[in-house]
Design a protein around this nucleic acid. Structure first.
Length: 103
DNA sequence: AATTTGACCAGTA
DNA sequence: CTACTGGCCAAAT
């Protein structure tokens, strides 16, 4: 099993997260058939080109927060994208109703 | 080649 | 709620 296939599996899962909802890194790894490999998900997303159509902003950490520093541009960018598509926040936390629950 | 780092996480205390 | 542990592993140092 090479990284190429892992990446394809991960990006497929991310592309399926519905607009207005989020999934955690661990959840994405699990659904991609890679349990325990949340960090791999983060690493793959960090390498996406700027022009990518993958909805990377819908992946957040297990505490239901954006994983970038609150004062970073990356944080503000991700948060704006999520709020634009209807994700609800309570402070830094994303509300449960905005969490993806695939069958 | 060895060590550290990182868009992480579940379990435990 | 916070703190710490051990698990994960490719890329950067």
């Amino acid at each position: 099993m090479g990284t190429k296939q892992h990446q394809a599996a991960i990006l497929l899962v991310v592309s399926r997260i519905p607009r207005g909802q989020v999934a955690s890194y661990g959840q994405v790894a699990e659904l991609a058939g890679l349990p325990g490999r949340a960090r791999l998900v983060g690493r793959i997303l960090s390498r996406l080109p700027d022009n990518s159509n993958i909805p990377w902003q819908r992946v957040v950490n297990a505490r239901s927060e954006i994983s970038f520093a609150r004062d970073s541009d990356a944080y503000r960018r991700q948060r704006q994208l999520l709020e634009q598509e209807g994700v609800f926040f309570s402070g830094a936390r994303i509300r449960r109703q905005s969490h993806w629950q695939p069958q």
